[in-house]
């Protein structure tokens, strides 16, 4: 699969900038033990892999607050999981549109914690780009599973 960094920048800009109205810039920033929330969707079919958005809990709260029209502290944990799952779902749908092959997208899954590491057995990370939104770091990841055939 050929997914350029420019494709990823476009997807991230469309989601965080155009849809959510948040500031966003490509920037490598260490998360340093902060609590994180990762939204992930899996793709199966002609291409197999996953697309994930891994962000700090602080950014996840801001995203949820914006989407729901609430203050960041007013969003419930369920709201935050829903919002980050949906961001991953939109990201996955946009990556899927670039694949040029028939695929299915899973419903999103959300993982929370510190020192999270996303792995899929038999898959390699083909995109791992750092961004910053509203002063908080996040990462955009694409994992590709090796084709059996």
């Amino acid at each position: 699969m050929q997914l350029s960094h420019e494709d990823v920048r476009q997807i991230v800009g469309d989601i965080f900038g155009a849809m959510l109205g948040l500031s966003v810039a490509e920037r490598e920033t260490a998360v340093n033990g902060a609590r994180r929330i990762t939204g992930c969707v899996h793709v199966s079919g002609g291409w197999e892999g996953a697309v994930a958005v891994d962000c700090t809990e602080a950014l996840a709260r801001r995203v949820a607050g914006f989407m729901l029209g609430l203050g960041a502290e007013e969003a419930s944990p369920e709201d935050v999981r829903d919002a980050i799952g949906e961001v991953a779902n939109v990201a996955g749908g946009n990556v899927k549109a670039l694949l040029g092959t028939e695929c299915a997208l899973s419903l999103p899954t959300v993982t929370e914690g510190i020192d999270l590491r996303l792995t899929i057995p038999g898959a390699r990370t083909i995109v791992d780009l750092g961004f910053e939104s509203e002063g908080e770091p996040f990462r955009f990841l694409v994992l590709e599973k090796a084709q059996d055939r």
Binding site: M19, M67, G69, D79, D82, A83, G85, E86
Partner: peptide, 13 residues
């Protein structure tokens, strides 16, 4: 939409 957050985005839009 199964996402409440996305329903809110659609309503706002």
């Amino acid at each position: 939409d199964d996402s409440k957050a996305m329903r809110m985005i659609v309503i706002r839009s």
